[in-house]
Amino acid sequence: MSASASLPFLATARSSRRHALPGFNLSLGLTLAWLGLIVLVPLAALAIKPWEIGVGGVLAVLTDARVLAAFRLSFGAALLAALVSVPVGLLIAWTVTRYRFPGRRLLDALVDLPFALPTAVAGLALTALFAPNGWLGAPLAEWFGWRVAFTPAGVVVALVFVALPFLVRTVEPVLRDLPLDAEEAAATLGATRLQTIRRVVLPALLPAVITGFGLGFARAVGEYGSIIFIAGNMPMVSEIAPLLIVVKLEQFDYAGAAGIGLAMLLLSFVILLALNLWQRRLRRGRA
């Protein structure tokens, strides 16, 4: 343990650096090049392109009745779908984390299906299922007279499928880490089980629910593949905003397509920002 085997290394001293671990310049450089070339430069094009037709031109595109109807459907259906996902997602997350029953693990894995299933396949599947002669479409039409496929209702159904896993996957870990002590404490203080769930469990889940709602909404509002098969795509009725971008592009109206795209992005960021602020206020109130 005496000889200085490490001393030769001292002689090979390298240039001075401010980081203890190597690879900072390489990794950050790669990251910035990757991010810049793939994401930032193209998105900059989206931000610049619409103004080629002037502010008036952009406003004309966006206030067109067909465009307005498409925005109403895209944002309305996405919000509704995210909203529907909340109780459904809470129920699934609760059962999967709190109860033991046969098929629990399989169910838990299946929740990720909408992530793993290509959107076009999901769209095709839901269309087949809810078509007037489909396994679910036929009984719904016969018993209730409801039509789902090729209507705005179909859009909402497809978006629930898309948004649901976000809810389950954000609520599940919080629910699992929620200390049972708090619920036991509530019980010792005389709360009924339902009171405990309403006053102790649900408030603790609220921030996660907002996160999941936001993620589900963000994904749903831009969704394309799973909708275009089931929506029927009738202008003014069941036509979504992303489809209008495709239509504009087919007419080589780049500026108009970019205008719709930019408006969609900005509008959904405003909504996500509002959710974020709400969540931050909840967190601060708690701390």
Partner: peptide, 15 residues
């Protein structure tokens, strides 16, 4: 360290 200024010697070479 041992009389050598280690300002430019990274952790891996300090021994």
């Amino acid at each position: 360290i041992a009389g050598v200024d280690v300002a430019s010697v990274p952790a891996r070479d300090r021994g």
